[in-house]
Nucleic acid binder design. Sequence first.
DNA 1: GTGGTCTAGACCACA
DNA 2: GTGGTCTAGACCACA
Lengths: 124, 124, 124, 124
Amino acid sequence: MDFIDYLDSRPIYQQIADRYRQLILTGVMLPDEQLPSVRKLAMELSTNPNTVQKAYAALEREGYVYSVKGRGNFVRANETLKSKQKEEMKGKMIDLIKEIQAVGLNSQELFAEAMEEAAEDDRD
Amino acid sequence: MDFIDYLDSRPIYQQIADRYRQLILTGVMLPDEQLPSVRKLAMELSTNPNTVQKAYAALEREGYVYSVKGRGNFVRANETLKSKQKEEMKGKMIDLIKEIQAVGLNSQELFAEAMEEAAEDDRD
Amino acid sequence: MDFIDYLDSRPIYQQIADRYRQLILTGVMLPDEQLPSVRKLAMELSTNPNTVQKAYAALEREGYVYSVKGRGNFVRANETLKSKQKEEMKGKMIDLIKEIQAVGLNSQELFAEAMEEAAEDDRD
Amino acid sequence: MDFIDYLDSRPIYQQIADRYRQLILTGVMLPDEQLPSVRKLAMELSTNPNTVQKAYAALEREGYVYSVKGRGNFVRANETLKSKQKEEMKGKMIDLIKEIQAVGLNSQELFAEAMEEAAEDDRD
DNA sequence: GTGGTCTAGACCACA
DNA sequence: GTGGTCTAGACCACA
């Protein structure tokens, strides 16, 4: 249950936020479902409540979650999250394409090869 | 000549390394060509020599550059750099594709849209 | 009948107090009319009786309500409530005007625009 | 020089952020001007560096400031800040107008009175 | 020296 | 019990 990777270069609070962002966007967590309490999650991950707090604050700021004092943090039912997410992914893709082109590689070809290899990984 | 962007989130030594990595891979700098001296580049960029040093050290570690004590830093003539670079880019692309698919988006479609937008940005 | 909005950033006890303050000031609730009992309202709102209690205590402290032990809470017939309320609102308006002017904006113009947009919101 | 007000209901990190937001928007602090370092400001305000850090992080997130590792925090030259600020003020005004109307007061009249009183305060 | 992250632990508001 | 703020202090990356 401990999904923190200390070898990961992302700070811990980021890893937590990324994790829950994903759970919400993939529909594993449903609107109004409660996230684990700050303290409980901190215990589970053997990390500090402040660190979890920082992750949850980011999620709230970004609109993934709403927090009710004395109650907990809950998944927000936000129709626009999906499209926001898509824009984010597109942004990353554009950056990568530019990086590829900047070094003189063919982004179309490289994408095709990457797709194949990604599919192979899945079959493993 | 000052290519450092303080609004960029990457640390300065990274921006310098990224810059020269690119100059080398795109063939703007040729094998055995000399890089600017640490002090000179530090002056030009009004930054700390330590910072330039750190960038050059990274380039040497990665095999882009070789350093000759008392003489300077020079571009390495390494045929394999290109393919190594390509594998790196493909790796990034595969990661991104997986991330996109993990949230249930269509990577093919998103790539196509990103290509268009990247082209538009270029025309600006 | 449940007017609590968990997405609202105000704490629940505040939302309850605000609600009844409004009902009283707008004349929907008349002098000596009885408020719902703490327990009943707590049930209706599926919230904690302590929370309702805290809201009622605030209303009593502010003079909107009087409580009779063993009987309940009742709207106070206070002629001065209206003008007190007006002074409060005016105070808020003055603070906001000063804030607007402090950053060099035209408060008159901004008020006019806000009035229009507020009216639009109503028509939705 | 200590602008923190412990009687203020806003948390300390908010007061700090509000303060610098204002300094930037009113042009007291100019683009690329450096903010006091986290540690120095913490000393000056006899507060904790973490608290200042939290304020600066908020300012960066909102686009008022950019941070350079190992260098410091600097005012961002953002043309759009002004209009963003205006929207924020308008939002506050709209909320207040609705609140006023909700209790059956005349917002136009109340605004006029508030303007007068605000002007009087200035003459003091 | 400068920013950023994290821990340990306290204390408050709220439900 | 639940979230939010804050302090004291450590440690790391970067310039």
